[in-house]
């Protein structure tokens, strides 16, 4: 029997320190480990260096002033193209070190990190604004006859990684059941052992994993994972197909609440002032109220 690695979001976050580099899986507003992000919001952690294909994870952390540095290819809510909280933070000059990469460069940085290589070469990014705004990026010349100059994307090693899966066993053999694993396996592989956290919709017995999906879905094995958090609806309000779609109405409310200080204070008071259980209860209450409104109108 393998080790029981189950912990809570708050236990996972309590193991982290200020200034750490944290990689967050998912893509845009898709299968984000939101319950872990909410635990960071509850904590005193600060000056974080975030690595993400950014969505509301980045928006929430930016709004809370948690981000010192961030490496990203984009920040978007998908169905709402621009992330208003991220925009507000950037436009206020509140992000000390924004490191903007091409989407593929970010994959390469994580892949190099996971393979313990110093860099990986690519053409993506050469000649673009990415080179202009990241003057520390260097090129490398092919040692073969072609002699081509390529961008050497430096490896990213993470101090901590958060990903959200559909299913996991208690030791961290985890499955994605939706259309895309995104780069979640790379976030875990590029992370130093110790703080690699997988939240999931449901913890199941190992022998049941293949009842939930084919072996192709088993992209995460327990050597990549230090802690497993059972977090039903943990990706809310991002999607977690096929368990649930994005909560578009809630996302819209979240985005609208960025309008001013008062509306954002009301949102955080209502949804983000308590525990994860409090959050889920507040979302349920909001949904019942919205359904009642809908039924009346």
């Amino acid at each position: 029997m393998s080790r029981d690695k189950r912990i809570t979001e708050d236990e996972a976050v309590a193991s982290l320190s200020d200034g750490m580099t944290i990689g967050i899986g998912g893509w845009g507003s898709r299968r984000k480990p939101m319950s872990l992000v909410r635990a960071v919001l509850r904590s005193r952690l600060k000056d974080l260096s975030i690595v993400s294909y950014g969505g509301p994870d980045v928006g929430l952390l930016a709004a809370a002033g948690k981000i010192r540095r961030i490496t990203y290819g984009f920040v978007s809510l998908d169905s709402i193209a621009l992330e208003p909280h991220w925009r507000a933070a950037r436009q206020a000059g509140a992000i000390a070190e924004p490191v903007e990469y091409d989407e593929g460069m970010l994959q390469w940085a994580l892949y190099a990190g996971s393979l313990r290589l110093p860099f990986l070469p690519t053409r993506a990014g050469l000649g673009s604004g990415v080179m202009d705004v990241n003057p520390s990026l260097k090129t490398v010349v092919s040692p073969y006859d072609d002699g081509e100059e390529l961008l050497a994307v430096p490896a990213i090693r993470l101090d901590a990684a958060f990903v959200h899966m559909n299913r996991s066993d208690m030791s961290g053999n985890a499955q994605f059941l939706g259309p895309d694993v995104y780069f979640d396996d790379l976030f875990l592989s590029a992370c130093e052992p110790g703080h690699r956290y997988v939240s999931c919709e449901q913890v199941v017995p190992t022998e049941d994993l293949l009842k939930h999906g084919t072996f192709h879905t088993m992209r995460i094995n327990r050597s990549m994972v230090d802690g497993v958090i059972e977090a039903p609806n943990g990706a809310h309000f991002t999607n977690c197909e096929p368990d649930y779609p994005r909560d578009e109405a809630f996302q819209k409310m979240y985005a609208t609440a960025a309008a001013n200080f008062d509306s954002w204070s009301a949102f955080t008071e209502r949804f983000l002032s308590g525990s994860e259980a409090d959050y889920q209860a507040a979302v349920t209450a909001w949904r019942i109220a919205a359904d009642d409104d809908g039924a009346r109108s």
């Binding site: 984009f74 920040v75 978007s76 621009l82 460069m105 993506a124 990014g125 673009s128 202009d132």
Partner: peptide
């Protein structure tokens, strides 16, 4: 990606996304 200077944007847009890799490939 951005309107205005990157360090101090007037408007933060999407980010470069796949633009650099798309156009060079």
């Amino acid at each position: 990606a951005v309107i205005g200077p990157f360090a101090n944007p007037k408007a933060q847009l999407l980010g470069v996304r796949g633009g650099p890799g798309n156009t060079i490939n």
